[in-house]
């Protein structure tokens, strides 16, 4: 779904996730929840398997006891260039914008949930119930972000409201958006700098350098050719690294 016009667009947002740095602390999950007006996940929502986590930390065990290792991998919307969710939506509620982002238009969504079936990363969330917040938390909602109604899909937006704000401020001041100026909530909250966000069109940005490194790979891209804009940096274990260097 790459249009020729997108190649010359000013920005192409992307993210790198350094799996080697992730400690599985879930700070990104909480930050996202607060920033993006996600409904409160109660115990019953987990039991119903309907919890909302635009970014989640998946935990896998590797090896057999006693040589067992916990592996953490944060998974968020991969903002695929060839997004399988986009062509299946009958009403264009999800589409690719000219800055490499997969965006969701809540007003258009009729809730067929076809996009969620199409998504191999399972990062789309359906509002099965009308989201409700406790009275005390009503004033905590972020005024920059739409509160979604029941019956629509939602997903990670790369904190599009922050991108918009940074671009507007840069335009007002007559300058370009600086690298690192935009930080989605998860990136901002990450204590180990696992997540790095930036402009992939800028060859000097931190994210560009990281994704051109040897450790970079993309989830399921070999099998499905989804061309995600989120790059993962492979884990390097000390013992394995020694073997590699030795």
């Amino acid at each position: 779904m790459v249009q020729p016009a997108q190649q010359i667009a000013a920005h192409h947002w992307g993210m790198t996730v350094d799996v080697d740095r992730c400690t599985g602390c879930q700070a990104c999950v909480v930050a996202c929840q607060a920033e993006n007006n996600l409904p409160i996940n109660l115990e019953e929502h987990f039991h119903q398997k309907r919890a909302f986590e635009w970014i989640r930390v998946e935990r896998y065990w590797e090896g057999e006891f006693p040589n067992i290792k916990a592996r953490f991998i944060p998974i968020l919307c991969q903002h695929c260039e060839n997004a399988p969710c986009e062509p299946v939506c009958p009403v264009y509620a999800t589409y690719h914008n000219d800055q490499g982002m997969n965006v969701q238009v809540y007003n258009r969504c009729v809730g067929t949930r076809y996009c969620a079936n199409g998504c191999p990363y399972q990062v789309r969330f359906f509002n099965y119930w009308e989201p409700v917040w406790p009275e005390a938390l009503r004033n905590q909602l972020n005024p920059d972000v739409t509160v979604r109604s029941r019956g629509v899909m939602e997903k990670c937006s790369f904190c599009v409201q922050r991108i918009r704000r940074a671009r507007i401020e840069a335009k007002r001041d007559g300058r370009a958006v600086a690298d690192g100026e935009i930080q989605p909530a998860c990136v901002q909250a990450c204590p180990t700098n696992t997540l790095v966000f930036g402009d992939l069109n800028d060859p000097n940005s931190k994210v560009s350098k990281l994704r051109n490194g040897r450790r970079a790979y993309r989830l399921l891209n070999d099998a499905l050719r989804t061309e995600p804009n989120v790059y993962y940096l492979a884990r390097v274990d000390n013992d394995e690294a020694e073997v590699a260097h030795g």
Binding site: C89, P90, Y92, R108, V110, Y114
Partner: peptide, 28 residues
């Protein structure tokens, strides 16, 4: 569907002024 009252968007071109038509790539 999540919002059945809006399902007419599926098959009828609904907003000429904004130029958004149903997505003919979708099997739906």
């Amino acid at each position: 569907a999540g919002r059945p009252w809006r399902i007419i968007y599926w098959i009828l071109p609904y907003d000429f002024s904004r130029g958004i038509w149903p997505n003919v790539r979708s099997p739906l």
